[in-house]
Design a protein around this nucleic acid. Structure first.
Length: 80
DNA sequence: GGTGAGCGA
């Protein structure tokens, strides 16, 4: 399942998302959308989880939760 | 070097 994560801290990296989501389930890959020109974080990213059950509980647990000192928004991304 | 709603190269 693709998971959309928004309102991240600007210093939050993809590995931070990976370890955060891995606490509630298996994480296939995590990505933080950084500006390809400047390299600065856009403040949102995507997390891919193989298990949909773990993905749902990870969203429920991490949505509106505190990550790196900022309240983040976690919800399903572009499903395929 | 900073901002703060939104879906990536």
């Amino acid at each position: 399942m693709n998971i959309f994560v928004a309102k991240l801290n600007f210093k939050t990296r993809k590995e931070d998302l990976e370890k955060a989501f891995s606490q509630y389930g298996q994480v296939a890959s995590a990505k933080v959308i950084t500006d390809r020109e400047t390299g600065r974080s856009k403040g949102f990213g995507f997390v891919e989880m193989p298990n949909d059950d773990e993905a749902n509980k990870a969203i429920a647990a991490l949505n509106e939760s505190e990550l790196d000192g900022r309240t983040i928004v976690v919800k399903p991304g572009n499903a395929k």
